[in-house]
Design a binder for these strands. Structure first.
Length: 939
DNA sequence: TAATGCACGC
DNA sequence: GACGTACGTGCATTAT
């Protein structure tokens, strides 16, 4: 058995694990942030489980930066930036390592890199395969035969192993030793070490190809000449230092003894203790068995853990045989199952006879899982390659389909009895995609649906939802990766059409198999979490509605857009030139970085200029607006910003999104991303078409009816979120205002300013509107004063008055927070939930965020549920009445239709009725409706 | 390719 | 003294 030694650079791994998880903090019930501990532990376990090392060690460099690094102050500053809670995690991490009985190497005054570098050389000499586990460096000079760099998986990307061959290919060098020359020339971004300014990867490779070493490059700076020559001369000193730093010392005083690094049994007692403390429940169960609960210390097989192997090295306990240790390690962490170790029967169904037999089988089932394989990801532009079915765990069938459209269509139509069966449930992951693909082949799916992606969306709204992630989390199974079929994504990625059918069969059949198994896991979880109602009544039926809408698309007037583009172009040019003239320099106006430097360094517009968290000057619209009175350059900058945004994002981009098959723009709705329950739209996003400014609204004129027989019709809910908060808080004051159909913002103004309704000034109304708006999002006095440009004290008075006038709303907000604190979640009236793990956090900022979510989500989510129900009702009514009008778009509280002129009088009341009665509230629900020759007119 | 800053919608 | 409004998507720039 080949001996595999893994050497881990602990600090680097901890840093990366911490930052990878920071967006989704793990906080224990006592408010402790355990990101770093969790990230490091899972990285370690994944590695042990997947790579099955026979020998392992972790290196710390608690004494870094070492002297040679301190030459660069930047480097030091960079290292000392570590957040406190990350540094606090170090003792825990050491205990975890002890619990796993993994040897730790630490050597005073040496970098972890150098210690493991030395060990790697020695182990490689002794015949080991050595893997240096580190996230962010290429130890080029270390890569000799049998020494590899192992980059653990990171943020969804696969792990990576770099050997001598790969390193030479990557940098196009003859010998791996030249990597330090490359690094010397380019510098090292991770640690902020400069090389030669202006020399990047490509230039460095070119220079090395010609001159072999960094020293030769420097010596020939004169011969190189030109700008490049000057740069090299200027950066020579820095390059030499950079190379020195990139060089890993391989002669630190350590000696590799293989018995010191054997992977041995875990120390269950220690692990139980630390996992209990950190509240790693699932992880604990996986490693320590189902019996893992707090205080249940299992039998221990303690070993002496060598924490200081060097200096005065002492002998360690004899380790068990290598093979035994490796197999023990293998059971540490799932997913441990995959296609090669799991029994399965995947069949190729590639003849008419086989297909007919399969169909007969399928029609006997109550539920059938299906999945399509296609030539790309845009459902409106792909061809179908094949289709798979599964109805029993571990069994699945793959049907290859011909490239010829009509031939494929004929085969697909054989399965119409299944797709349109009145009682069979079709199970799938993101079925909308498959339905849309099928629709292009004339197959309308009308069977019942169960979408595992949507089930998971309701079970865990914030989790990751890719099939791979779900499979790993719920089935401990690692599916065949798509990359193994068509290659890594990017320019080189291949086409499913070109993959051998045997391979696709394995992949596609497995997908159907896994999805069916996921359904079995999720189906009982829905009622357990009481989200079955919103799943079966809202999300699932909505799939068909969205499929229809995406299939329809909307017509765009390209002529109007291209005219407008030219107009914007000249206006942008004018504003840009004017800015350069007033600034006295030419620069990239579109670059916030350069603009900040011009405004605040050259023009000195604000000595106390705000900076962003990366140290750049902030140049957002709010900042610029405050500078407007200091220099009239600001006006032109704002014009430039507004117009270039319009041009690049909408005017120029939309025509490029027109589908050649239909001549229309087909957006794609994502039904499972927004944690509040809203839809989102992309490719293109049609939910953020401008409306606020006059120039922006112009874009809406380009959205037009399909032909002269139609008009665009827009219907939108009026004040829906305020109506919802009034209804669920049962605030009598606000409910009365809605019942009496008073302008709600004016009514609010009258109350908070204590004046009669008819005495409300436009200013009062505007302020009241902002408060109403802010209430929904949990605004503070500060935020409101910023927003309205009024003193903070005045804003505070406004808010205080508001709560005094609408006491039940204040109570609702407090109740929501309390509900979340007790239950760990908040919910909409239909039971859609959002879990708020930070609601009891000891960190006020984190807790405040969770509290605002607790207030906002039920409101926004209920509005989302309501319009979804309305869409389902409208779609159904249109079909029942065989109408030619079509629902096209949804924009959170608005629906847009292609309305046939002859049907206007039918659909107007129909739409209004569906919207008003979708989800009745204790106050009237109103919707407004308009029609026109374009979206702007209709609005 | 990924991170950043900015800007658009509700 | 810092912090300060929910939910999204997409573009250009920048660094690598």
């Amino acid at each position: 058995m080949q001996k595999k030694l893994f050497l881990l650079d602990a600090m680097a791994l901890i840093y990366r694990a911490y930052y990878a998880l920071i967006r989704n903090p793990r906080v224990t019930s006592t408010g402790r942030n355990t990101n770093a501990q969790f990230g490091f532990t899972t990285t370690l376990l994944d590695l042990i489980n997947k790579e099955k090392p026979t020998h392992l060690a972790v290196a710390f460099d608690t004494h870094a930066p070492t002297e040679r690094h301190t030459t660069f102050t930047d480097y030091k500053a960079n290292r000392e930036d570590a957040p406190e809670d990350l540094l606090d995690a170090l003792p825990d991490i050491k205990r975890i390592i002890e619990g796993f009985n993994i040897p730790v190497v630490e050597l005073d005054g040496y970098e972890a890199d150098d210690v493991i570098g030395t060990l790697a050389w020695q182990a490689a000499e002794a015949g080991y395969n050595v893997y240096m586990v580190t996230p962010d460096k290429d130890y080029g000079q270390l890569v000799k035969d049998n020494v590899y760099i192992y980059k653990p998986p990171y943020m969804g990307s696969k792990e990576e192993i770099l050997g001598p061959k790969e390193v030479c290919e990557k940098w196009q060098i003859k010998d791996v030793s030249q990597v330090i020359d490359i690094l010397g020339l380019m510098g090292d971004a991770v640690d902020n070490i400069p090389g030669i300014a202006g020399v990047g990867e490509k230039t460095a490779m070119k220079l090395l190809a010609q001159y072999e070493t960094l020293e030769n490059v420097l010596a020939n700076a004169d011969a190189i000449g030109g700008k490049m020559g000057e740069k090299i001369k200027a950066g020579a000193e820095s390059a030499v230092l950079s190379k020195e730093l990139a060089t890993i010392i391989t002669d630190v005083p350590v000696t590799f003894h293989e018995e010191d690094f054997c992977l041995t049994d875990i120390n269950k007692e220690k692990l139980t203790e630390i996992f209990t403390e950190l509240e790693f429940k699932t992880l604990g169960k996986r490693i320590l068995g189902e019996g893992f609960t707090s205080g249940n210390g299992a039998e221990t097989k303690a070993k002496v853990v060598q924490t200081d192997l060097f200096g005065n090295a002492t002998a360690v306990d004899t380790a068990p045989a290598v093979d035994e240790a490796a197999s023990e390690a293998a059971s540490f962490l799932a997913p441990d199952k995959n296609i090669s170790n799991t029994p399965h029967q995947y069949e190729l169904t590639d003849t008419p006879e086989k297909r007919a037999a399969l169909l007969q089988q399928l029609l006997q089932q109550q539920e059938v899982c299906f999945d399509t394989e296609t030539t790309g990801t845009d459902a409106n532009a792909v061809d179908i390659v094949g289709m798979s079915f599964s109805y029993t765990q571990g069994e699945a069938y793959y049907i290859p389909l011909p490239a010829d459209h009509d031939a494929a269509r004929a085969i697909l139509h054989e399965f119409l009895p299944l797709f349109q069966h009145p009682s069979i449930t079709l199970v799938g992951q993101n079925i909308k995609y498959d339905m849309l693909v099928l629709k292009w082949y004339g197959v309308e799916v009308t069977a019942n649906l169960f979408d595992t992606m949507l089930a998971h969306y309701l079970i865990e709204p914030e989790g990751r939802r890719s099939m791979d992630a779900l499979s790993a989390q719920y089935l401990q199974y690692e599916p065949v990766s798509i990359e193994s079929l068509i290659g890594k994504k990017g320019k080189g990625q291949g086409n499913m059409r070109d993959v051998e059918v045997e391979k696709i069969k394995e992949y596609a059949a497995e997908d159907a198999d896994i999805t069916l198994q996921l359904k079995a896991v999720f189906a009982p979880m829905l009622p357990e979490r009481k989200v079955d109602k919103v799943f079966y009544e809202v999300e699932n039926p909505l799939v068909k509605v969205l499929t229809d809408m995406e299939f329809e698309g909307i017509r765009i007037d390209t002529q109007a857009l291209s005219d407008y583009s030219r107009e914007l172009e000249s206006e942008i040019k004018r504003a840009e030139e004017s800015v350069y003239e007033q600034a006295g320099v030419r620069f990239k106006l579109a670059s916030p970085k350069q603009l900040g430097e011009v405004l605040f360094e050259k023009l000195q517009l604000d000595p106390k200029a705000k900076k962003t968290r990366t140290g750049q000057y902030a140049t957002g619209e709010d900042v610029l607006a405050k500078l407007a009175n200091k220099h009239k350059i600001v006006d032109d900058i704002l014009i430039f910003r507004e117009l270039s945004k319009l041009k690049s994002t909408y005017v120029d981009a939309l025509p490029l999104m027109i589908n050649p098959r239909t001549g229309r723009v087909h957006t794609s709705y994502n039904q499972a991303v927004a944690v509040t329950g809203r839809l989102s739209s992309n490719n293109p996003n049609l939910q953020n078409i401008p409306i606020r400014t006059d120039r922006g609204r112009e874009v809406r004129k380009a959205f037009v009816p399909r032909n002269e027989e139609y008009v665009l019709l827009s219907a939108d809910y009026s004040q829906i979120e305020l109506r919802i908060i009034a209804a669920i808080s049962e605030d009598q004051q606000m409910m009365d205002a809605f019942r009496q159909q008073i302008d709600i913002h004016a009514a609010t103004a009258a109350k908070v300013y204590n004046v009669a309704l008819e005495d409300v000034t436009p200013d009062m109304r505007r302020n009241a509107k902002s408060v109403n708006f802010g209430i929904i999002y949990g605004v503070s006095a500060f935020g409101l004063s910023e927003n309205l440009g009024i003193p903070r004290s005045e804003a505070k008075t406004l808010i205080d008055n508001y709560f005094a006038q609408y006491p039940s709303i204040k109570k609702y907000m407090d109740d929501q927070i309390q509900f979340a604190q007790t239950n760990g979640y908040v919910q909409t009236t239909l039971g859609r939930k959002r879990w708020l793990k930070d609601i009891n956090s000891s960190n006020a900022v984190v807790r405040g965020y969770a509290e605002r979510n607790a207030i906002n989500m039920p409101i926004q989510g209920t509005a989302a549920d309501m319009i979804k129900l309305a869409m389902i009702a409208v779609n159904k009514a249109f079909k029942e009445n065989n109408l030619r009008s079509r629902m096209l778009l949804q924009v959170h509280d608005e629906l847009v239709f292609d309305a046939h002129r002859s049907e206007l009088e039918i659909i107007k009341p129909l739409i209004l009725d569906c919207m008003r009665s979708a989800l009745p509230l204790a106050v009237p629900v109103e919707a407004e409706l308009g029609t026109g020759e374009n979206w702007l007119q209709a609005h």
